[in-house]
Design a protein around this nucleic acid. Structure first.
Length: 279
DNA sequence: ATGACAATCAGAGATTGA
């Protein structure tokens, strides 16, 4: 088995020219409210694939033309008012499934997955993990139960042994260094020990947090509250993550957070996180 | 300790988010 990561090594005839694929996750906090900001970012960042969270729209009301006219295939899993996820892809999508397995009673639209068909196929899962506040309580119980189901799906993805990733709004601050003011989040569902342990348990299966694989320094965030001037004080948290199977993690060439768009007009409270793979 | 801010649905203010 051979593979190429990054630039070719001179004289090595096993190295091929790779195809860079840019994949992003973005919690847009309402498609209707982001009808300008989202296309503006797409035109600048030009990702090949995007998973969206909190579209807050039913499938029939999702403005798919805006994305189709930019060359994206569009798959949605929406519901009225809250939640809702989607996948945009310039490459063909196959085997689209909706809903996280493990609880047929769960009607919240928080999971969608599809195979992106390029030179090499990759399974892409978009997720909007429950917030879980207040903790303790029924919402926190739902969050932890949802993370148990996520762990099971993660195991099954690994067993498939194809490149795969689970990307989205995890609503988990993995470590203190992922918050400007960790002490303020100590009793919050996003940073409770149980939430962090459940996140770590998935990582420990063999997944790579793409951003942390490339950047170890503190001070990198993907969410800033609308309140109290959080953006201007850089009072943020890192809760949007891309978890890659070993077969996908081996292909990472770059990863980043498009933080600057938090300062643009009518922003979401989240910003996009992206990864480039040599697929 | 609380609220601040934004989005949705509805058509005022409650609910949800993080």
């Amino acid at each position: 088995m051979w593979r190429a990561v990054g630039s070719a090594i001179e004289g090595d005839d096993h190295i091929r020219e790779g195809t860079a694929m840019k994949i992003a996750t973005f919690n847009i906090n309402g498609i209707k409210a982001r009808i300008s900001a989202l296309p503006a970012w797409l035109d600048t960042a030009a990702p090949d694939v995007v998973v969206l969270q909190e579209i807050k729209s039913v499938d029939e009301a999702f403005p798919r033309e805006i994305f189709e006219e930019r060359g994206y295939n569009v798959e949605t899993h929406g519901q009225k008012s809250f939640n809702g996820v989607a996948i945009l892809s310039k490459l063909p999508l196959e085997d689209v499934t909706r809903g996280l397995p493990g609880d047929p009673e769960d009607e919240q639209a928080r999971w969608i997955e599809a195979t992106v068909v390029g030179k090499t196929a990759i399974r892409i899962c978009g997720l909007y993990l429950p917030n879980g506040n207040p903790a303790p309580g029924p919402k926190f119980d739902y969050k932890l139960a949802w993370m148990d189901r996520l762990h099971q799906r993660a195991q099954d993805l690994l067993a498939d042994e194809m490149p795969a990733m689970m990307a989205g709004d995890y609503n988990v601050i993995p470590q203190d260094e992922d918050a400007k003011r960790p002490e303020a989040w100590q009793k919050d569902a996003l940073a409770m020990p149980e939430s962090r342990a459940a996140f770590r348990r998935i990582l420990n299966l063999g997944f790579t947090d793409a951003f942390r694989a490339r950047v170890q320094s503190p001070g990198h965030y993907s969410f800033w509250d609308y309140q109290a001037g959080a953006w201007n004080r850089n009072d943020g948290i890192r809760i949007d993550h891309m978890l890659l199977t070993p077969q996908a993690a081996d292909l990472i060439t770059d990863c980043g957070i498009d933080a600057e768009i938090r300062g643009h007009d009518k922003p979401s409270d989240h910003v996009p996180v992206w990864v480039e793979l040599d697929l």
